[in-house]
Design a protein around this nucleic acid. Structure first.
Length: 542
DNA sequence: AACTCCCGTACTGCGATGTT
DNA sequence: AACATCGCAGTACGGGAGTT
């Protein structure tokens, strides 16, 4: 019989996946690609071999791996992903560490010594007399918490050191692993309050969790232990199996709600499992990746940040570089851990003509990299092309033809704390500051600029400076609801209004730009009057 | 509560630029 | 030419936030 892969249906593949899931057929880990289905990954060739059996009765799969096999799966609507290289490498470490922990359940002092041995502290217990004693027992969840009570770099270092010591897979990242609150590392109370086999119950729970045998009863039992919260226990479950369990914690809950539309409130293990199933219904992404994305989304990506990237025209000819589209990276020397992909920046050049010369978007995370060769051409003096912390950027608006100079904006309130022209390369900026530049470049409402162009330039400048003076000397805030600034496009008129009276106005009639002002005293022959209730003249419109 | 890290502010010194 | 001022892909340091 000839090879008939077209007979395989989507259903056959699904049955094959279920067979792997239920341990009915053996399989080997794939090398380059996986089928991604409901957050779990499966080896394409092994799945297809079994699917082919369902379709034709013959247990075989002839095509090579990679594209040759993947095309059939893609045609059937399955998602194929390349193996992530260097990402989530800690999972392998965790899997092996879980085995190691299980072997050492009765060797808890040794586990504590291991942690102490790699430089972790905080092992003081309190006995019944409130005397400080060395901790002499530990559960596996707390073991993980000790590793992850540290900051982002130290905790990975610790995991690596531990992996080396125990001969486990050496991790290269810790993406998506929840952090433990350093003030609440223990999953059990002090010895003086340990009365009910707390540590042993945690070990039993751990073993059941490894075998996916948790039920409502043992779940609610474990929650009765002091210092075990349901959030924390979901993090612990995730640590021991990041494919089957998902942490419902600070970062993930708002992410689930706002990105996937899943409400993550739960009180029992069944409800927890239901949430996990809902996540799988919504996305194929594995739990560990979701945990990482949730953390990213929360920590950074939730809101775009705005930055000033500064350069000196004495050192670097950024103007020509921008015009030649040669700017593709920028140095990051401050705010390294806050600047991130998707943020916006104001490109600020210092010197006599200090100002905003471009607006752009950051397109990579901060990383050690060299400048592109083309970028090097714009240094005014020879500069070595060394590696430093940089981000990739794109220029969205090139303002080099008409830069927004400091002179033009320094009076504005939003720029009172503007950090451009300070010494340094990267500063924080506000959305308002960025938007001000954006509005000048790309005005949403052009009426103001258009009317301004029609009016006599000198008079407009005078008008605006009088107005600014007035606003400043009377300390008028832009949100003061007694005032408004109107643009009357049809009349070519700009007006500043207080209450319901024109106070300053400038407009063009026929060919003349006219300037009007309200005053107590008569200042012009051409005028009209304002009369109060008694009929007296209160003010003049000159 | 002590420690670490990093940002933001205040400041120095000096070459570049401007003024007389 | 001599003097004055400006401004720095500067540095030093205090203090807030985070960590332990």
């Amino acid at each position: 019989m000839s090879f008939q892969p077209e007979k395989i249906t989507r259903e056959d593949v699904l049955k094959a996946i279920n067979d792997i899931e239920n341990g009915l057929i053996g399989y080997r880990r794939s090398t380059k690609f996986d089928i991604l289905y409901r957050g779990r990954t499966y080896p394409p060739k092994d799945v297809m071999r079994q699917a082919y059996k369902y379709a034709t009765g013959v247990y075989e799969w002839i095509p090579h791996g990679g594209e040759a096999t993947n095309k059939y799966l893609i045609a059937l609507g399955y998602e194929i992903i390349p193996k992530e290289v260097n990402k989530f490498t800690w999972i392998e470490t965790h899997i092996e560490l879980v085995d190691y922990l299980l072997e050492n359940e009765n060797n808890q002092v040794h586990l504590i010594d291991l942690l102490k041995g790699i430089g972790i502290t905080g092992f003081e217990d309190l006995d019944t007399n409130d005397v400080s004693i060395a901790l002499s027992e530990i559960d596996p969840f707390t073991f993980f918490c000790y590793l992850y009570k540290h900051g982002p770099e130290k905790r990975l270092d610790l995991l690596k050191t531990l992996a080396k010591k125990l001969n486990l897979h050496i991790p290269e990242d810790d993406l998506g692993i929840p952090s433990a609150n350093a003030q609440k590392v223990w999953m059990f109370p002090f010895k003086k309050n340990r009365r009910n086999n707390e540590i042993q119950r945690l070990w039993d729970f751990f073993k059941k969790a490894v075998n996916l045998e948790i039920n409502n009863e043992i779940f609610s039992d474990i929650l009765t232990i002091t210092n075990v919260g349901k959030i924390k226990i979901t993090e612990g479950l995730f640590n021991l199996n990041p494919v089957e369990y998902f942490p419902l914690n600070g970062p993930t809950k708002p992410y689930l709600k706002e990105v996937l539309g899943i409400d993550s409130e739960f009180t029992s293990f069944i409800e927890y499992q239901n949430i996990l199933e809902r996540i799988r219904d919504k996305t194929n992404k594995p739990f560990y990746q979701l945990s990482y994305e949730a953390w990213q989304w929360n920590d950074n990506n939730k809101k775009v940040n705005y930055w000033i990237f500064q350069g000196s025209p004495k050192i670097y000819d950024a103007v020509t570089a921008i015009n030649n589209k040669a700017v593709s990276t920028w140095t990051v020397s401050a705010q390294k851990d806050k600047i991130k992909e998707g943020d916006k920046f104001i490109l600020w050049l210092t010197g006599a003509n200090a100002g905003c010369y471009a607006l752009g978007t950051i397109t990579s995370e901060v990383a050690m990299m060299k400048e592109e060769d083309v970028e090097m051409d714009y240094y005014l003096s020879p500069t070595p092309q060394i590696e430093n912390n940089r981000v990739r950027v794109t220029i969205d608006y090139n303002l080099t033809q008409s830069p927004v100079l400091w002179e033009m904006v320094k009076e504005e309130d939003v720029f009172s704390d503007f950090k451009g022209s300070n010494q340094g390369t990267n500063f924080t900026a506000t959305k308002e500051q960025y938007d001000t530049f954006l509005d000048i470049v790309n005005p949403k409402n052009n009426d103001y600029e258009e009317v301004k162009k029609i009016l006599d330039e000198e008079k407009v400048t005078a008008f605006l400076s009088i107005l600014r003076n007035f606003v400043n000397s009377n300390n008028i805030k832009s949100n003061d609801d007694r005032i408004s600034f109107n643009v009357r496009k049809k009349q070519n008129r700009l007006v500043f209004i207080i209450g319901n009276k024109y106070v300053f106005a400038i407009e063009k009639r026929n060919t003349k730009t006219m300037f009007s002002i309200i005053s107590k005293n008569l200042t012009s022959e051409k005028h009209s009057t304002y009369i109060n209730q008694k009929g007296d003249i209160e003010a003049y419109w000159n």
